[in-house]
Simulated assay, not measured.
Amino acid sequence: MRDQVLISKIANALIEDAQSHISSLAPVLSAFRAVWGGLWVGGRVTLTSETVSFAANTMNRIAQSGTLDVSVPLKQVTDVEVLPGLFTNIVAISTPDRVLKVRCYWARKFADAVIAARDAVSGAR
């Protein structure tokens, strides 16, 4: 089966090893990292028939470094849940190795699409 894009939307992802190049923000970002376990990075989350991935946008690539692109095979997804957020909710996509957290508008709809795509690629659970 050919990997096809199902949904692609603007989002932020919590990146554990993200570092800011703006030194004046270091104390604030250090505190933020301690609370959240990483920094929120702006970009695009894309759900395909085989993966869910995040890629940072150009502005965040200029301002930050770290693992700014993340891809999770749907066959490895063990759980998908929607967590409350301030302006947008957070979709937590779990695998045996990690949890990819993305915040986006219409998070519940995106989470449902990830679950449906995972079930389609792995067989209904």
Results as ranks from 00 to 15, higher is better:
Ser20Gln: 13
Pro96Val: 03
Asn12Tyr: 08
Lys9Val: 10
Ser30Pro: 01
Gly123Thr: 15
Val72Lys: 00
Arg108Met: 15
Ser71Asn: 08
Val35His: 10
Asp79Tyr: 02
Gly85Pro: 09
Gly37Trp: 06
Ala120Glu: 10
Ala34Gly: 15
Leu86Ser: 05
Glu81Ala: 14
Pro73Arg: 03
Val28Ser: 06
Thr88Gln: 11
Phe54Pro: 00
Trp40Phe: 14
Leu100Arg: 00
Val70Phe: 00
Leu29Ala: 13
Leu14Met: 07
Ala111Ser: 12
Asp79Gln: 15
Ala11Cys: 11
Trp40Thr: 15
Gly123Leu: 02
Asp3Gln: 11
Ser23His: 11
Leu47Lys: 00
Thr46His: 02
Leu100Val: 03
Thr67Tyr: 03
Ala117Lys: 02
Val121Glu: 09
Ala55Asn: 12
Asn12Thr: 07
Gly43Met: 05
Ser23Glu: 14
Ala63Cys: 09
Thr48Trp: 04
Ser30Thr: 07
Ala117Trp: 01
Ala26Thr: 11
Ala124Tyr: 09
Ser24Asp: 05
Leu39Gln: 14
Thr95Ile: 09
Ala13Gly: 02
Ala34Lys: 15
Thr58Ser: 15
Glu16Asp: 14
Val114Glu: 02
Thr67Ser: 12
Phe32Ile: 08
Trp40Cys: 14
Ile115Arg: 11
Leu74Ala: 00
Val52Asp: 01
Ser20Phe: 07
Leu14Gln: 03
Val28Asn: 08
Phe32Gln: 11
Val70Asp: 00
Pro73Ala: 10
Val114Leu: 06
Ala113Trp: 03
Pro84Leu: 03
Ala111Val: 13
Ala111Asn: 06
Cys104Asp: 03
Ala111Asp: 14
Lys109Asn: 12
Ala111Ile: 11
Ile93Glu: 04
Thr95Met: 09
Ser24Gly: 14
Met59Gly: 06
Ser23Ile: 14
Gly38Ser: 09
Ala18Asn: 03
Asp3Cys: 13
Arg98Val: 05
Gln64Val: 04
Gln19Tyr: 06
Val28Cys: 07
Pro73Gln: 06
Ala116Asn: 12
Asn89Met: 12
Phe32Gly: 14
Asp97Gly: 09
Val80Thr: 04
Leu6Glu: 08
Asn12Met: 11
Ser94Asp: 09
Ala116Met: 04
Thr46Ile: 05
Val5Ile: 13
Leu100Cys: 07
Gly42Met: 07
Ile115Gln: 10
Met59Ile: 07
Glu81Arg: 11
Leu29Ile: 08
Trp106Val: 15
Arg61Cys: 01
Ala11Tyr: 03
Ala34Ser: 14
Ser94Phe: 00
Thr51Gly: 00
Val91Ile: 15
Ala13Gln: 01
Lys101Ala: 06
Pro27Lys: 07
Gly123Ile: 13
Ser20Pro: 05
Lys109Ala: 13
Asn57Gly: 09
Ser65His: 01
Val99Gln: 10
Gly123Met: 10
Ala116Leu: 13
Tyr105Thr: 12
Ile10Gln: 12
Thr48Asp: 05
Ile115Pro: 04
Ala63Gly: 05
Asp112Arg: 09
Arg103Val: 04
Asn89Ile: 02
Asn60Ile: 00
Val35Arg: 10
Asn57Phe: 02
